[in-house]
Nucleic acid binder design. Structure first.
Lengths: 146, 146
DNA sequence: AGATATTTAGATAAAAAACTCTAAAATAAA
DNA sequence: TTTATTTTAGAGTTTTTTATCTAAATATCT
């Protein structure tokens, strides 16, 4: 569904939402280690999220990353949009370039419907909700990190 | 969602279902040209579909490819299974390896549901239906080929 | 048998994605 | 002001995916 980079981005954002605050950052190396993501690769991804105003970064000691906005104001689809783009939610299921509402492929209508459901799912879920889910024990985001 | 190979495989199967019969084959080069797929690349994909008993191939003049079974006995998910495998329908939406029903990620339940809907869509659609859709003018599978 | 047409197979190449390394820039703390 | 620590940036590598080329195998037709 999404690229590896996009998965890493989502995972990292979830981790940062859990562990950073208005007064404290979480370091790249910690995210990388806890979420088992290649450090330098993650570095590029977080830079991209900074550029897209989803994260704030600070250099030097006590530096690191924190959310650019309150977690309830960041939905998962924004993270996807920043990394993979929203193309996935607009592409033909069979890969026909010319497929659209006027020129539908044999599964166009059905596929369009479920595609929209997936999109709605990521659009409706924000980081605050994911943090609450993890803190309540309803779900997990890493083996160690809860 | 699926790899380029998988898209090509689906497109080619749809084309062959439209243009081959019990007594006639359709040639690789025709599928490649009409569906705008790189010829030698498509060759590998069709070989894979032959090995998975979805196509029959014949060499020499009048040779080519035809369906291994009646089109109503081939569902789209079999094509996907032969090329990409069914992994897509079983993977975490956020990319967590450890995510499952016991250890759910924050979107596990929702994602699982829509993932199953996508799977059902490809499971329920067979090649006969797609051919009928195209022949009735309800949908298209290529610019030239109807 | 010979000519022609087709798939099969293997080697190779190009492009994209995933990942690594090193050095520079910035900043907090001692 | 120096040192230590962290992000940033750019180049470079590896792996995977996508695509191409050539020759062999097979089959049809004359």
């Amino acid at each position: 569904m999404f690229s590896t980079s996009c998965h890493y981005g989502l995972q990292a954002m979830l981790y940062i939402a859990m562990h950073a605050s208005d007064e404290s950052n979480v370091e790249l190396k910690v995210v990388a280690k806890e979420q088992d993501i290649p450090r330098h690769f993650l570095s590029k991804i977080l830079q991209q999220l900074v550029k897209n105003d989803l994260l704030i970064s600070m250099k030097g000691p006590t530096g690191g990353f924190r959310l650019a906005r309150p977690p309830e104001k960041i939905t998962l689809i924004e993270i996807i949009a920043a990394i993979d783009g929203l193309g996935v939610f607009n592409k033909c299921g069979i890969g026909f370039k010319q497929c659209n509402d006027k020129n539908p492929c044999p599964i166009h209508d059905d596929y369009k419907k479920v595609r929209a459901e997936v999109e709605d799912l990521f659009k409706s879920k924000n980081l605050k909700e994911t943090v609450e889910d993890v803190k309540s024990g309803a779900s997990i985001i890493s083996i160690t990190g809860g």
